[in-house]
Each structure stands twice: as C-alpha cells, then as structure tokens.
Design a protein around this nucleic acid. Sequence first.
DNA 1: GCAACTTTGTTCCTGCGTTCACAAGCGGCT
DNA 2: AGCCGCTTGTGAACGCAGGAACAAAGTTGC
Lengths: 225, 225
Amino acid sequence: MIQPRPRTIPEATVARLAVYLRVLTALADGGRSTVSSGELAAAAGVNPAGLRKDLSHLGPCGVRGVGYEVRTLSDRISRVLGVGRSRACVLVGIGNLGSALADYGGFGSRGFEFVGLFDASPARIGQRIGGHTVRSVEELEDVVAATQASIGVITTPAEVAQSVCDRLAAAGVKSILNFAPVTLAVPAGVDVRKVDLSVELQVLAFLGQQRLGRAGQLEPVEEPA
Amino acid sequence: MIQPRPRTIPEATVARLAVYLRVLTALADGGRSTVSSGELAAAAGVNPAGLRKDLSHLGPCGVRGVGYEVRTLSDRISRVLGVGRSRACVLVGIGNLGSALADYGGFGSRGFEFVGLFDASPARIGQRIGGHTVRSVEELEDVVAATQASIGVITTPAEVAQSVCDRLAAAGVKSILNFAPVTLAVPAGVDVRKVDLSVELQVLAFLGQQRLGRAGQLEPVEEPA
DNA sequence: GCAACTTTGTTCCTGCGTTCACAAGCGGCT
DNA sequence: AGCCGCTTGTGAACGCAGGAACAAAGTTGC
C-alpha cells in the first residue's frame, strides 16, 4: 500500500507549521481543548484558508462544525516535524551571536541539542556556555563523527565561514544554518539555510521608506495618471 | 519629468540587492573594476538571468558586451536601498541576543545606528555594550521621541514582546524587527519583520529528514495503515 | 569599416504559493 | 428523528517569482 498523500510538504508550509505548533502549545497551557481555524489563523497571523490548506498536508485532523482538538493537532504536527526526536547540533564560532544561540533555551525544547561548541580563539576555549564547554575547532571532525551530528550552525566571521562549511560537510553534516554574511558553496546533498541580520534590517528600512513615499507625506512620487 | 519605472520593487529582489551590494563591496576591495552578471550571480548564489532581472528594476546600468562597472552599480544599489542615510534604531531586550546585535559591527557600516538600548532588568541597566549604555525601558518613549528613531528591534522574552511592540508603535516607530517567538499585532502603517531562530532550525531539520526519506535510506516514518 | 563574439535587457513560459468560494460533514436544537 | 448552522477540506482562479531563450547593443579584432 502506498501513501496517497504526496510526501512533499512545501517549505513555506513547514515554517508555518512550526508557528502553529507554538500557538497550539500556548493554547494547551491555557486550558483550551479545541480551536477553530479562524482563531488559530488570527493568532498565527495568517489567512484561515491558508491555514486549513497547510493542515491538509497532514491528512484530515479536524472535526467539521467543531474545529481542531488542540492536543491531537499538536501531536500530529510534532510528529511530522520530528519534534521530540533528539537532533545533535554543533555550533562553530562562539562570539556574541554564537554565545546567544548556545544559551538560548528555545532549541532544547524542540529536540535540538548542542553537542559541541567550537571556536578558534584560545581565549574562548574552555569557557562554559549553556552547560557546554567551548572546544578547539581542531576537534570539530572528531566530535561530529563521534556524535553523528547532522546539523551545523555557523556563527563565525565571514572570512572563515566557507572553510568551516567545507569541514562540516566533509565530516558528514547534512544541514547547515549560516549566520555569516557570505553565500556558502556546498556539495550536493547538503542543505544550507542562511539568516542575514543586516539584510533583514535593510529590507525593513527599504519598505519603510517606500511606504513613506506612498503615503504622500512628502512629495508623492506616484506616477500621475 | 516622471520616472516611467514602476516604484514597486519586489521584496525578494530587495533582499537580493543587499546581497549583491555586499559582494560588490568585496570585489571593489579586491580591485575589480567591472564584473559580469554570470560572475556576480555565482558569487551571490543566484541565477544569472534572475540577477539581471533584479538589476533591471534600477534601470539600465550595465554595458553590453562588457558587464557592470563595480563602482557605478554599487552606488546605484546603495542609493536605492538608502544605504548611507543614517537610520536611528532602538533595541529593546538586552539579553544574550540583544547584546550580540548591539555589538555587531555589520549594522553601522550600512547606516543603521543604535541610539538606544533598553532593558527592564536593573542588573542590565547601566552596562555599556557596543559603545552605548543600557537604559531603563521606562525611558523608551522619551528616547524615541527625541531621536526620531524609525526602527525598533525586539529581543525581549515572548511574554512582553507585544507590550513593547505597542509602546514602540505608539511612540512613532514605523518598522519593527522581531526576534521574539510570537506573532505581533500592529496598527496599520507599521511594518513588522519576524526572525524566528528555532523555526529556521526546525525547517532545516525537516528538510534533512525529508531528504533522507527520498534517498530511500530507511523507510520514512509512515502513519501505519 | 566590417564582421563576429560577448554580454545585457527583455519576453515568454512554467511552476508554486496564496486567496477566494463552495460542497461535504458533524453537532446541537427542536 | 429531522433540520439548521457552523466548520472543515478541497477545487479553481489569480498573482508572483524563477528559469530559459532571444533580440539588441557594444567591443574587439581584422
């Protein structure tokens, strides 16, 4: 028997499922037992129809006329996303940002566990952050091999990010989250996801100034009819 | 004389323009004077045709048969994005992540200047980070009004993010970058951009396990029949 | 001066994501 | 038991981003 449902869930949907899961957890803590798509969508900041379509990728999991049972839906999403499955992560580059991530509690509750913090600076090595000890980046390959880490996070300066990325990929890491402001080249079979904080600010600023122009506060730069 | 070009540049294009700008800056530092779309696209990790389409939103700025002049293109993108224009930003929530952002040098070179760091904890108030002193969140409205800050960054715990957001919006901040894991509600005319680190990891992990499933290495965790 | 090569700018097209709208199904009320 | 209202799940249309192919334009060599 084959599954009639296509196994591919759009990436945008996956991102929203994670958001829904967080909202559902908050609702469960609040004692709610059921919730409608409209209410859930409002809390997540999306369109109700889009939410239902996202959830349809999991198969029918609601009751018509009533809504979704919070517990059931929460479990279903957790299972699909693989929450609870422990995932070993390594983090390279223990600067300000790296320290913040290592110390952030939001990962552990989702099954992400840092099994190695690495830095090249002798001043950093040996420090304890978030319950782990910073190790020399020389040990990177050994730790990845020993722990079978599948996720690597790069928070190094841009200059060394590519070489760190190469070493992670060579050591067997299949998924890389990159905070360094460079575009990484990786071999096939390795996923890279980039988070660029200054680009986010830049886009935000551009939208702001574009909105000012549209608002006609100062000379309306509209094309006249 | 009106500009015949439509003023709306797609958001995705704006984000890529910021990336191109970074690559161009690196090229200029390396002494390059011209660059082709193919080379620039490779360095930015995008399709050459897409890059040319992005650049076409700025009007013709290349020379056929030669390529783009690095200096000219760099200036053009900078002007469109508003780089160089100084933008006052306030940062609320000086935890690990907030400290990292306040101390990150990548913002100042793009014209983003933090004019206020705020926290509610007395233990944090008075600390100096990145050349600024952490102030009480009580002073938030006064500082925003005095500095005409247009951008606010929220790195507080989730529980207080909405109230901070409300205060920022009421004080006149028009663009908000939110790192707290909640969906913020804002009045019309205010832009919010959300960066959710744990969602990024979640998506990465899901793509990884999905890739494993497709590879047929082991049977994917099917719902039993 | 002319031809050939290189590279841009544009156009078409395909696919995806989002939104709207409606049929199907379930609980509650009479 | 039967009807009504509410909510889900799905099908269709719309708009948008991404990719490939092509024409225009400029340079280089002869």
